[in-house]
């Protein structure tokens, strides 16, 4: 058939776009890149689908996560949406909690915002390692009941948990503050070198190897104990 519109071949085409479509597309692009970075991290760091929590291993995974998200523009909403993606069992072929939490921490620590709030209470999956190495000047508010190693290696940031934290909360932290409105699990403050942990609920147990820092329960200093 003859092209009856040929006279308009030279007219530049404007694709009609609803603003929402543009926003959704931009979001999807970011989410794709976040997912891509996470999958690469998992493939590199979790060779046998087993991830052991060793200090050197954690440090290496964090470094890999930071390099995976370099040059990526994202904000708090993207991090929250990525949490939702991680919670969705179909989104990723395999989900290993440790690297996922470290990857999220890397995103939080490198985000442009100084104050970040993540609402995690609705998710079925338990997130570990959130708040890992939270730097000075950053405030992270986590709503929901969390897994192990929350605030591990905290270095100057302020972490507020509106819920509970699992074992090894604040493990190896060097500075900053962790506030937990619920309870914390075993080994709270293990390998702690500085900073403070404030817990409003019960504390399952304290870490035995500690090198500094303070732990308060309902406003009362419990570690170091007066007798220590």
């Amino acid at each position: 058939m003859k092209n009856p519109f040929l006279d308009f071949q030279s007219v530049p085409c404007r694709k009609k776009e609803i603003p929402l479509e543009r926003i959704v597309r931009a979001r999807k692009e970011i989410m794709d890149r976040l997912s891509e970075g996470y999958l690469r991290l998992v493939e590199e760091e979790v060779k046998d689908l087993v991830w052991l929590v060793e200090h050197s291993h954690v440090v290496r995974t964090y470094s890999a996560a930071v390099s995976a998200i370099q040059d990526l523009q994202y904000d708090q909403d993207d991090i929250e949406e990525f949490c939702a993606e991680l919670d969705n069992a179909n989104a990723f072929p395999y989900m290993i909690s440790g690297p996922a939490g470290i990857y999220l921490s890397a995103l939080i620590n490198n985000a442009a915002e100084e104050h970040i709030l993540l609402r995690l209470s609705e998710y079925e999956r338990t997130f570990h390692f959130l708040g890992y190495r939270l730097p000075e000047g950053k405030t992270l508010v986590l709503q929901g009941n969390l897994g192990d190693f929350i605030g591990a290696g905290l270095c100057g940031g302020r972490l507020m948990v509106e819920g509970t934290a699992g074992n090894w909360c604040g493990a190896g932290m060097t500075g900053g503050e962790i506030l937990v409105t619920g309870y914390t699990g075993q080994k709270t403050g293990e390998w702690m070198r500085g900073g403070e942990i404030h817990v409003d609920g019960p504390i399952g147990g304290f870490g035995r190897a500690r090198f500094g820092g303070k732990i308060y329960q309902r406003g009362k200093l419990v570690v170091p104990h007066e007798s220590e």
Binding site: F5, F8, Q9, K16
Partner: peptide, 9 residues
């Protein structure tokens, strides 16, 4: 004109 140009494409 845009509609005609899009149709051409």
């Amino acid at each position: 004109k845009n509609a005609l140009a899009v149709a051409c494409r």
